[in-house]
Amino acid sequence: MKPLENLKQVNELKVDPNSRFFSAQHDEITGGMTTDIYFIKTREILEHLDLGNTPVTAEIFARKSGVLVGVEEVKRLLESTGVEVWSLKEGQSFSPNEVVMRIRGPYNNFGFYETVLLGMLASSSGWATRAREAKQAAGDKPIFCFGARHVHPAVAPVMERAAMLGGADGASCILGAKLLGREPAGTVPHAVFLLVGDTVKVAQAYDELMPPQALRLVLVDTFKDEVEESLRVADALGERLEGIRLDTPSERGGVTTGLVNEVRLRLDAAGFNKVKIFVSGGLVPDRIQLLSAAGADAFGVGSFISAAPPIDMTMDIKEVGGKPIAKRGRIPGIAENQRLEKLL
């Protein structure tokens, strides 16, 4: 789709809300349909004044620190515009007010994408930063992103990809994992246990049907006491059982340090010391640290990552026609950052 250039094209644009999902399609994003209208007006004014090809340098920064993700999407957005781009690497940490990306070229070649590229960086960096915080809390123990159910499906793979770049060891969203060349992580939900009616029966069917590389990890909080269910499953699968998962709902107190510790001690006492304990359900960094100390071996983190606030990004023009310039309150001219690398 050819990018929108003026208000006439915007006014003539017809969208049928009854025949589609409400998320933007890729050609609508590259076509400028998700930008703020004032950038289209700006583009038309500059073309009218014969200033659309004015060379500018723009810089992007954030007010707070974080992990930069979204760079690859911005690269694909701008790669056919003829501009030059320098950036921090995807997954790199940045400091408050540090320039994370610099764009140079004719303003009308990329200016109308400001809304789009800032959104790409802001959301993905927010998710990646939360994932990094969760991973730091877990130390050398793995965490997995289970946040797809908390966001719109159009952005779920973006979110889970960002989480893995931020430090998550895997993700449950199929497309999110595949976008990074990985396989999605996860076993089965409570639904299958409720339908079958017995945890051990589900565990045995899973063991029988799933390929050898599939992790033999079983939920144990659906029907019985978690300790009792863990031991039943361990007895049934024996050496093939690799782990049990605790996802006790808040109505029953959630997954506590006491529960994790008891399950660990009971499994060890029964000779199942190799069985790992995977925990999930409302995990935040403080709880991850406590549960880890109690004996948890791995963590499924959902809403803490998916509900991350975007890290607000700002794009400022710092040069026009090769001359330093800036709005009041900002310093004219480019801000040197030796960490930036040529992207386009």
Score class of each variant (00 low, 15 high):
128 A>R: 13
71 V>K: 00
114 E>Y: 04
252 R>Q: 14
232 R>L: 06
203 A>C: 01
229 E>M: 06
161 R>D: 01
65 S>F: 00
143 I>C: 15
46 L>N: 02
4 L>G: 05
8 K>L: 14
294 A>Q: 06
111 G>S: 11
71 V>W: 02
126 G>H: 11
125 S>A: 13
290 L>W: 01
71 V>H: 03
118 L>M: 06
187 T>N: 09
124 S>W: 03
122 A>I: 11
37 I>C: 00
38 Y>V: 09
330 R>C: 10
40 I>S: 03
174 I>C: 01
167 G>H: 13
179 L>C: 00
151 V>Y: 11
59 E>M: 07
324 P>M: 04
47 E>L: 03
225 D>A: 04
21 F>S: 11
341 E>I: 09
32 G>A: 10
72 E>Y: 01
65 S>T: 08
208 E>G: 07
63 R>Q: 12
212 P>K: 12
105 G>C: 04
125 S>H: 15
225 D>F: 07
253 G>W: 01
110 F>G: 03
102 R>E: 15
214 A>N: 01
99 V>P: 00
55 P>D: 03
256 T>I: 05
191 A>N: 11
318 K>N: 07
99 V>S: 05
312 D>L: 06
306 S>V: 09
260 V>Q: 14
175 L>C: 12
53 N>V: 10
31 G>T: 11
248 T>L: 15
306 S>N: 05
49 L>D: 13
160 E>H: 02
279 V>L: 04
54 T>D: 02
301 V>W: 01
270 A>D: 11
263 V>Q: 09
183 E>T: 14
150 H>R: 08
328 R>V: 14
126 G>S: 02
200 V>I: 14
159 M>R: 06
114 E>N: 09
75 K>A: 14
210 M>Q: 15
66 G>D: 07
13 L>A: 13
260 V>L: 12
329 G>S: 11
20 R>Q: 06
327 K>S: 12
136 Q>T: 15
259 L>P: 05
272 F>G: 02
333 G>T: 01
11 N>G: 15
339 R>K: 09
238 G>I: 02
312 D>N: 10
210 M>S: 10
336 E>I: 13
321 G>F: 04
286 D>S: 07
113 Y>S: 02
264 R>T: 00
177 A>H: 10
145 C>T: 14
193 F>C: 08
250 S>E: 12
215 L>H: 09
80 S>C: 01
83 V>Q: 03
244 I>S: 01
